[in-house]
Amino acid sequence: MVENALRNNPQKDHGIRFRFQAFLDSVGLVVVLVLLILFFGVKTDHFLTAATFRTIANQVPDAIVIAVGMTLVLIIGGIDLSVGSVLALSGAILGVGLTRLGWSLPVAMGVSLLVGVMCGAVNGAVVIFWNLPSFIVTLGMLEAARGGAYLIARSQTQYIGAVLDRLAVPVMFGLSVSFLFSLLIAAGAQFFLSYTAHGRHLYALGANEESARLSGIPTRRLKFAVFTFAGFLSALAALMYCARLSAANPNDAQGYELQAIAAVVIGGTSLMGGRGSVVNSVLGVLIIKVLENGLYQIGAQLPTQRLVTGAVIVAAVIIDVYRRKWERVSQK
């Protein structure tokens, strides 16, 4: 039955060819990444140093974790615009808990994660109960969670000090616990997508929800689970974020949703659903971060950076169009 649903969409085949395609995409992204690194290496004095890569490794964990959640949401044909606000809300609760309320670290972390899960669950529940587009529902959450963050933090930045340093301090090869953990999450999510039945069901759900449902795939439950998980990942990203900056600011992470979508799209995940890979999203995040850091090191001002980043996103999508055309041709 499930295979039926998959066969309904020959262009979104999930067999060996698909995985091979994803692999080819990865190779392409790695090439782009290497070219970028070489470009900045030539253009600046100190880009090709361990310090640059430590810096990037220090900055990416929260972005990677968010991108993993976003990839899953996009694969099922949804979108989650609330990730940045949920991050800010979880961060605000962590900050206020640790400072004003005097909670212990495990309690503060637990509550903060729980709030993220709840935000995700609300997103998922509203989407499935009223069968609403996730764009609108998560847009609502974007506003609501941001408002919650301001209320809880009383619009103040909370300085949390060194309590979370364990996450952000390098443990091996200059890499932090946050970084290793974010890779572990990405690997886990990729394994789930590629090698478990429910993982494959997500692709079917994104490709054609109706036929997936008729094939006996528990579409509603899966949707709910994906949005809830995305909320959890936003809260996890909040922990990494606050550990990195030793502070929580309710204004934080505005526009994170768009940055995550950009990274995921650069990684070749389709906004229409049914197609995507977590590994490639991680590469997308790395490309954006290398680009950002390189431009900072060149000394490019913010307007230039935004121009370049915007151009890269559009270029990635245009390349994606050709890639899909080529895919279709090669399948005939």
């Binding site: 100190h46 880009f47 310090a51 900055q59 974020y241 600011n249 850091n293 900072y296 090191q297 000394g299």
Partner: peptide
């Protein structure tokens, strides 16, 4: 912004 400042400073101190 706090996060952006962190990124800018990290890049500058490297370069």
């Amino acid at each position: 912004e706090m996060d952006r400042a962190s990124q800018v400073v990290a890049a500058l101190i490297t370069e």
